[in-house]
Structures are given as C-alpha cells and as structure tokens.
C-alpha cells in the first residue's frame, strides 16, 4: 500500500477521535480545534515512516495528538490567546450545547496530565492504552481516573 493510501485510511478512521480530543483541549473552540487537528495529521504524515507497529495505530495517533495539542496550547497560552468557551451567548443555545460548554469548562480546570487522561477515558480508550499514551503505569491510571471522574462529575453538577 502506498504511503498516501495508508495515510488516507488512517486519516479517515482517526479524524473524529482526533478532533474530539482537540475540542476537549480547546474548550470546544471548533475553528482552533480544526487547525490543531490539521497540525496533528501533518505530524502523522511526517512520522508515518517511523511507525513500526509496536503499538496500536490508534495509540500512536493519540500520542501524537496529546503531545501536539499540549505543545500548541503552551504556545497559545504564552501569547495570552484566550480560549473561547463553546457556549455562545446567543439566545438559542440548546440544552445539550450548554451541557457541553459546562463540561469543557470543567475539563479546562484540570491539570494538563489529568485533562489528557480524562479526555482519553471519555473517548473510551482502554486504561492500558491510556497508560501507554501518558507514560505512567496501569494502576496509577486506574486510581487517577477514579479521582478525576469524581472531580469532573461534581464540577459538572455544580456548573
């Protein structure tokens, strides 16, 4: 399979996961998330020759996504670029959008590592793979998820 075809397949299969993760890091800002997702896939294209299949392709993509998003966020925070919360002040914002806005706000309060862990958990990634993406052991991930889940649920409830 040519590199381009392989990339097309990876892109089609993984774009929704990548964009959801980017949205989580960027508090639901769609325009910024799309730019960031594009940045992620530029990196995927550049590193594709290095993928040896030691891990799942999705784990590999998630690692690139997490590292790229955090790196971009650090740059943006340094430029004091304010991240917009998805909840527009428009009058016709549906209930579900409000719920998402409060969820994004709560996720945004977490530390970079906890944010990454919970976003991967929300994506439904097995804890073993989350451990591989973050680089901590499986039991630490389990404990951490339990704690963040409580923290997040309480925050969303109070929003």
């Amino acid at each position: 399979m040519s590199k381009k075809l392989k990339f097309q397949k990876i892109y089609d299969e993984n774009y929704p996961k990548v964009i959801r993760l980017c949205l989580g890091y960027l508090s639901g800002n769609e325009a910024l998330a799309q730019d960031m997702a594009q940045e992620v896939f530029i990196k995927v294209w550049q590193y594709l020759k290095d993928f040896r299949g030691d891990s799942n392709i999705s784990t590999w993509i998630y690692r690139i996504t997490v590292n790229t998003c955090l790196q971009e966020l650090r740059k943006k925070k340094n430029k004091s670029l304010k991240i917009e919360i998805a909840s527009n002040e428009a009058s016709e914002v549906s209930e579900i959008e409000n719920q998402f806005a409060s969820m994004y706000r709560c996720i945004d309060k977490l530390s970079a590592e906890n944010k990454s862990i919970i976003l991967l958990e929300l994506e439904g990634l097995p804890q073993k793979e989350i451990a591989e993406v973050i680089g901590i052991n499986h039991s630490a991930v389990r404990t951490r998820i339990h704690r963040i889940k409580d923290q997040l649920s309480k925050c969303v409830k109070n929003e």
Partner: peptide, 25 residues
Amino acid sequence: NDFQHIKDQWQQHKTPSQPKNIEVI
C-alpha cells in the same frame, strides 16, 4: 452529573465535518 452519562454524551457529540482532501495536509 453522572460520569457514564457524561461519557455517553461525549461520544455522541457532533464534531465539525472532516475535510476530505488530504492533499492540503
């Protein structure tokens, strides 16, 4: 307020449409 509910909502969340052209990338 329940985490499982948050997770379900998260996975059903409508994401921005995917640009089809990989040539740009």
